[in-house]
């Protein structure tokens, strides 16, 4: 169990702003604080998923990635999202995402993971006035969303471009997402798929954005890539959650070396043992 690492990385912002931009920097820092306040409360996380970690490394003071958790009719609803862009545009989109998710759960619209994503997409399209015309903004978010039923030991997963990994008996199971975002896309909207999985006590569930795997670095300055990420998770999944977070952070920092962080990084890991009844 660990608290999320919310230490912002100000390197690039500091570099980009002239001395006269101090006010802007201050505003961004403050915006970052507001964004942190919008993220789920640490206590709520610990109450719903006691054994977990969150590795959250925003590229700027504010981030386009966000995580979210809520209780929904006895289920635990968990999401990890990557909004288009990073910095200010990404953060604005993340504000929308968090607000809409809260709204959907509060109104008790549904208890299906895919329907939550379907409704969220409608709200995003409506807010951004997206109707599929060429000149419109194509903003949106990629998201992994899970509904965990602790009593029935079931997991519903619905993914918008982002998968989920479950590690069970030293084997990594990839739960595939739909290849479309939450927001307008090139093809007509169709329902997100609802994937149901029976959970086992010792399962580890990982939700993440693509910031980790897309990070450049290493001896040949290449992306970290999913293959290496999966191997790393398989190697460390038996470690305690907090240690897993440290290893993941240390590995990506070493990989990055002197390279700039190119995107926000977010990974959450959950050990199912204390969650399932």
């Amino acid at each position: 169990m660990s608290a999320p690492d919310r230490k912002p990385n100000n390197v690039s912002l500091k570099r980009n702003l002239s001395p006269g931009g101090r006010e802007v920097r201050e505003s961004l820092r403050y915006a970052g604080l507001i964004q942190q306040a919008l993220l789920p409360d640490k206590k709520l996380f610990e109450m719903l998923v006691p054994d977990h970690f969150i590795l959250f490394m925003p590229r700027e003071s504010i981030s386009g990635d966000f995580y979210w958790i809520a209780r929904n009719n006895g289920n635990i609803c968990l999401a990890v999202a990557d909004c288009t862009g990073h910095g200010i545009p990404g953060a604005l989109m993340s504000f929308l995402g968090i607000t809409f998710l809260n709204d959907i759960i509060r109104n008790g619209h549904t208890n299906k993971a895919n329907r939550i994503l379907n409704i969220l997409r409608e709200k995003v399209m409506n807010a951004l006035q997206q109707t599929g015309k060429n000149e419109e903004p194509r903003d949106g978010m990629d998201m992994s969303l899970c509904l965990i039923d602790p009593a029935e030991r079931k997991l519903q997963f619905s993914g918008a471009n982002n998968p989920a990994y479950i590690i069970r008996n030293n084997e990594l199971i990839e739960v595939k997402p739909d290849k479309m975002p939450v927001g307008i896309s090139a093809t007509e909207e169709r329902s997100f798929a609802n994937r149901e999985i029976d959970l086992e006590k010792d399962d580890r569930l990982y939700l993440f954005t693509d910031g980790y795997t897309d990070q450049f670095g290493g001896p040949r300055n290449k992306k970290f890539k999913y293959r290496a990420f999966r191997k790393l998770l398989l190697d460390i999944h038996t470690e305690k959650m907090e240690k897993q977070r440290l290893i993941l952070e240390q590995t990506i920092r070493e990989w990055m070396g002197k390279e700039e962080q190119i995107d926000d990084i977010l990974i959450t890991g959950i050990h199912m043992k204390p969650v399932l009844k």
Binding site: E122, K123, V124, L128, Q129, T131, G132, E188, E189
Partner: peptide, 9 residues
């Protein structure tokens, strides 16, 4: 029915 792409909330 609508044959239109728009967000309906």
């Amino acid at each position: 029915i609508l044959n239109k792409r728009t967000g309906i909330t």
